[in-house]
Amino acid sequence: MSGSFSIDGVTVPFETGQSIMDAALAAKIYIPHLCHNPEFQPHGSCRLCCVTANGRTVAACTTLATDGLEVANETHEITTRRRLLLKLLFVEGNHVCPACEKSGACQLQAVAYHCGMLAPEFVHFYPKRAVDASHPETIIDFNRCILCELCVRASRDHDGKSVFNISGRGIDAHLTIDSPSGRLGDSRFSASDKAARVCPVGAILPKHRGYEIPIGRRLYDQESISQVGDVASHREQEDG
């Protein structure tokens, strides 16, 4: 069964069982998101994809499309709320873009550009978080983790390893690694894992590839994420 609904007045077809996000992606309509990747079960946690559906605020990735639904996506109010969420994400971690290898190909940055964020403006937390460089091929910088759980889902559902998990609640929530020492180098993680290729930010990065692509020529340096899509899908293409 199928039907159609509208996003900002544009008619979008859908198949039964598709979420608003899935149908939007298929129709090439961009709904900002960080924790969503169509290859995995939706998580609904970053709240960036919140839209209004018949006037109710819902997460586009966890809400099924229904016939005749009227969805508002890029309105002034919704974009303002998205900017607020992005600012909170920026001040909660240590996102030092000029010192980050992911800069220019970072989805947090790209979504913030799309939503028109000029500065985080709130008081910065400057949390003290260690870097885990124990693995020979992959580095984890917890300063940049936004708790999207994409690595958790990829390692559990695709790699069958469950290397990653989230511990703690609220402001104490943090990414943990399943190994005797808690370090990545002692875990079953491999650089060829799916979990190595899904991080939307610079938290999980391959080693030995620094600045292969110069700043200014990276994915989001020239074009908006609304045009070129998620960084994870590009990595899949690059890695073949």
Binding site: V91, N94, V96, C97, P98, A99, A119, P120, Y126, K128
Partner: peptide, 18 residues
């Protein structure tokens, strides 16, 4: 006007906050 990363979020110098 805050001009540049350091004025906006402390930037590279703020890495000493660790």
């Amino acid at each position: 006007v805050a001009v540049g990363a350091c004025a906006i979020n402390g930037g590279i110098p703020a890495m000493r906050n660790q």
